[in-house]
Amino acid sequence: MEKRWSILPALAGALLTVSSCYPGDVTNIQQLDVVVTAHDETVDFTSLSTYVLLDSVVHVDIEDNNNDDLLDRANDALILSQIRSNIEAMGYVEEADPANNTPDVMFLVGAWAVTNTNAYIGYPWWDWWGWYPGWGCCGPGYGWGYPSAPVVVRYDTATLVITMVDPNRAAVDEIPVVWVAGMNGVLGSGGTTIRITDGIDQAFDQSPYLRTN
């Protein structure tokens, strides 16, 4: 009887050792990349046609950012080029004279790197994109009009955000965001051109409703 019992704890221990509540490990860093998109379901995107893509990737200094360490300008041209390709693949036509013809939609591209901070949205957009002369709406007192409840997440790496706004539907103190995409992990020290282009492509691939035709 003694012998029988003595083997049981060892066996139980062995069984528990080979098991785990949460088996499976991340095998490459790209498995941590996440692309999040949201859109305003009241918008008929087929009614939209022209666009402007602001020509800068804005590094947004939200609270507790780590931009200086994790962000650089090496891939800005690639980012903007890839976004432009996807926008036009959706059927949008670039407005050649936005100063006189307000486009149907505008795309704003921002990036930030934050450690241990809950953030997604809520920073003063005017501070970062107010320089653009072709708004035709909206001023410093405007806030974001997001289509969904704010997604509050913990970002520990650099994040690229594409915001699509409709300047023609700006309401009082609110600039309507009709689509937003956040790509977590594609920038920063682990970011590569493949991860950047894959992330941007994924954002548009999972948003087929953006098509104008």
């Binding site: 509540c21 949460y22 088996p23 499976g24 991340v26 790209q30 498995q31 941590l32 990349d33 996440v34 692309v35 999040v36 998109t37 949201a38 859109h39 379901e41 289509p147 969904s148 409840a149 997604v151 994924q202 999972q206 948003s207």
Partner: peptide, 18 residues
């Protein structure tokens, strides 16, 4: 790609049930 409350999330999902 999962959709939760109008938000689409793409990424490698590690799913568990205990």
């Amino acid at each position: 790609v999962s959709s939760i409350d109008g938000i689409e999330i793409a990424g490698t999902q590690f799913r568990y049930i205990n």
